[in-house]
């Protein structure tokens, strides 16, 4: 066994172990951290395969982005430090079954593919080629999906800004119009005109 193989098996064991711990942990924050280690391990596997670009993107997107987001949402939830109750036996059985099914399905696909043996051609793609391909308009170019994804991101960003934006402040001296709903059975929002007050007095916005 060469050093390279030893490293491969070590990384794989790390990924699988961390993944297993992530699923079985009863503390939600620990589960997130194990997930993080599992994802870092996958990045390590990419480094081992010498596809550094994919590895770096894996870290940026999954570890730096998604897991941090997950951890933040855990922080903001109540009782994140409490132990979760043990899942019921029925749940456990079904989870194990679905995991086994997934494993069998993947194994079946991989075994049917029949990897050609002896094809150990070095696999190197320059980063500039990736960039060119991403913005290429020729055949097999990715310009259309790239632009569509950019538009999607732009739309979501504008949406975020609209949600987070404050209502424009009224000038002092002008009377304020604030809509107030009294309760559910009020047929239409009543408009109450309040003379100007120093602090904004927003009861409910409709």
């Amino acid at each position: 066994m060469t050093a390279s193989q030893i490293i491969f098996y070590a990384i794989s064991a790390f990924i699988l172990g961390a993944g297993l711990l992530s699923v079985t942990s009863t503390k939600i924050f620990r589960a997130a951290i194990w997930l993080l280690f599992s994802l870092v391990g996958i990045a390590g596997l990419y480094f081992w395969m010498q596809v550094e670009f994919v590895a770096a993107v894996q870290i940026v997107v999954y570890v730096g982005g998604i897991v941090v987001l997950i951890i933040f949402s855990i922080f903001l939830t109540q009782e994140s430090g409490k132990k979760m109750p043990k899942p019921s036996a029925r749940k456990t059985v079904f989870s194990v079954l679905s995991a086994l099914f997934g494993f069998g399905f993947t194994y079946n696909l991989i075994s049917k593919y029949g990897f050609p043996i002896g094809n150990t051609k070095p696999f190197t793609v320059a980063v500039s080629d990736i960039g060119t391909q991403m913005l290429s308009t020729t055949n097999y170019g990715y310009i259309l999906p790239f632009e569509v994804v950019s538009m999607l991101l732009l739309a979501s960003m504008i949406g975020c800004i609209v949600i987070a934006m404050k209502t424009p402040e009224q000038k002092p001296g002008e009377p304020k119009q604030i809509k107030v709903t009294n309760n559910e059975d009020a047929p239409a929002p009543t408009v109450v005109v309040i003379p100007s007050v120093p602090e904004p007095l927003i009861i409910a916005e409709v």
Partner: peptide, 23 residues
């Protein structure tokens, strides 16, 4: 060969340690 990207990627990991310590 992706030195700069590697640096930005790995430096984003340091926040994890701080979040772990804090929690």
């Amino acid at each position: 060969n992706i030195g700069v990207l590697y640096i930005t990627a790995v430096s984003s990991l340091s926040v994890i340690g701080i979040l772990m310590a804090g929690w």
